[in-house]
Write a protein that binds this DNA or RNA. Structure first.
Lengths: 205, 205
DNA sequence: CTTGTTTTGGAATGATCGTTCTTTTAGCAT
DNA sequence: ATGCTAAAAGAACGATCATTCCAAAACAAG
């Protein structure tokens, strides 16, 4: 009969996630992971095929533990612009909770440092980005519907605009300790969405 | 009497820059650099203290060879919104010239993957971001002056907004091969700047 | 307590890293 | 041509990497 594991393996992934997130995949060594997780080399390799497999597990855990809590409301049925505002508020609160420079988003950090030939990891990152895009499109579509609706092209453009803005927010959060700047950005961004969604004539070019 | 070097060392840095840019600092090995630059290990170490010193030289070269050609017009005296539009056009043209996913900006890529304790590299990256911020503020200030002027706070907010938008553009360019999306984003972004700079009443909250 | 099984901690391993060093090659002055 | 000097090439080095393996500890069952 299998014995219960003394240290739950959810902790292993949680601690590995934190280490990968703050330090970056390539910089983290197995020795670092052993030290930070408190699990021996044998223990890690008994549950994961290797460093990369553990990292992939961390990417999934990141989705569940980090992304879902702040993003689920945007994905919810009936979500609108208020849901997007709430998402940004939660991001800003998270930025504020940390001191000093931010550590950014694990997915976007990884995207900037994976080897070009690492298709498997890239696929996982693409999944994350697709998830965000789908969520934002959901909220934007709902919001536009309350104001008479927008054509598909404009909706797609606003979805991409939102996605790119979020990329910028995460990227820039790594360079500043001043959350006020990020908050100002979010205000301008939300104003723009509000205008584009509710005053479609304003977007004529 | 010293002999003239057979292969100019500007080529060494140029080729190393390309390698670091496409592959990322930590993934690139000295063996890769030897192969990609055509310069032997001895040759590299005779000119640079090590891998990190060579990389720092590449960051400087990146400024001269990549950033300055597309950004100098924004930094020029009298630059305005047109200069920012031109900068974006040159970025988009660069995206379009490449096929497949983009490789992003060397500075922003590096920012996402340096070890937390690498203060020296971080300082170089901060210099780049400060340069961009200063350039954008220059152009935005000039442009606002033609329309009656904006207060310092609003100008600062627009500068940061521009900076964050550029971060988003570079980051997202790594995830898509469709330059049309990036172009749409730029259009919306420029519209926003135009509105904020020339219709200050629109920004009342 | 004893036995059988599982997990653990860390030594061992082969590969690869950044760096150094030695040998070979090539250029210039005499 | 010859001797001198400096650069080029890559072999060699120690350190460190991810991974494997094994002996010892910890637990469950009898």
């Amino acid at each position: 009969m299998p014995r219960a594991k003394s240290s739950s393996r959810t902790e292993l992934v949680d601690n590995a996630l934190k280490t990968f997130w703050t330090t970056g995949y390539h910089v983290v060594s197995m020795g670092d992971l052993v030290r930070e997780t408190g699990v021996s080399r044998g223990g890690i390799y008994s549950d994961f095929a290797g460093k990369e497999a553990l990292f992939h597990a961390c990417l999934h855990r990141y989705q569940d533990r980090v992304v879902t809590p702040v993003f689920a409301q945007v994905e919810a049925e009936g979500a609108g612009l208020e849901a997007i505002r709430g998402y940004l508020d939660r991001l800003l609160a998270r930025f504020e909770a940390n001191q000093g420079f931010g550590i950014g988003c694990l997915v976007l950090n990884t995207l900037a440092q994976i080897a070009p030939e690492d298709q498997q990891t890239r696929a996982l990152l693409d999944q994350h980005i697709t998830r965000l895009a789908t969520g934002f499109r959901n909220a934007l579509t709902n919001e536009a519907a309350t104001a008479g609706g927008l054509d598909e092209n404009e909706l797609q453009a606003l979805t991409e605009f939102t996605l790119i803005s979020i990329h910028g927010l995460w990227s820039f959060s790594r360079t500043t300790a001043d959350v006020t700047l990020l908050r100002q950005y979010c205000e301008i961004f939300l104003d723009l969405l509000q205008t584009r969604l509710h005053s479609p004539q304003a977007q004529a070019r």
